[in-house]
Amino acid sequence: MTTANKPTTGAVLLAGGRSSRMGQPKAWLDWGGKPLLTHLVELVHLSCTHIVVVGAPGQPLPDLPRATRVDDPPERLGMGPLVGLHTGLQALAHRQVEVAFLGACDGVAMQSTHVEFVVGCLRTQGVDAVIPVDDAPPHYAHPLASAVVVDKALAVTTKLLDQGVRRPVRLFQQLGALEVPASQLPDPGVLATCNTPQAYRAAYLARWGQNPPTTG
């Protein structure tokens, strides 16, 4: 009964950002001896069968045996995360994946339980999208820790890009996303991302109890 009608679940992980504030490619950051992106793929794989990692053409990424790599079209490079989500959703729709977790390659605190939770909400609450929002004003939304129904999200994303919209939040507004306050997530800490060397060092220390190995 618990597994009946479970839809095919996938994930889109965005890895194509420029990592300009970090100063080095975020996908390759060491995370306990392996690249951060590899860690994330393994973690998401616990809950999702089809994983698409979206990169930029020519961008070196770690070998990812459990994921499919897809690149953003060159003509849309640098146009932001909505493009990446579109690329990823397209790839998932192609494989008849019904629902998907949307994440990023810098989710240092991501947990498989969070993926289960947002994807589970989608199913049980009968909505097309689920997105965590901060409890405190201005109630910032976290599109890259969310879940969507793939065909619905793909249709809206296509339309938004045609209209020149770049902000992922609009996708969730159009889908009438269920907003889950961060305090009600299984672990609100998962929303932490890491954009700067300082944030990375702090996250590494918190997780592994030591400083990250220094890189060239």
Partner: peptide, 20 residues
């Protein structure tokens, strides 16, 4: 029983309940 991790159990159940 299909015994699962407490954290996973938490996630699945709370997902079924939706935001409170």
């Amino acid at each position: 029983l299909q015994v699962i991790d407490p954290e996973l159990a938490h996630s699945r159940w709370r997902a079924a309940l939706g935001p409170v």
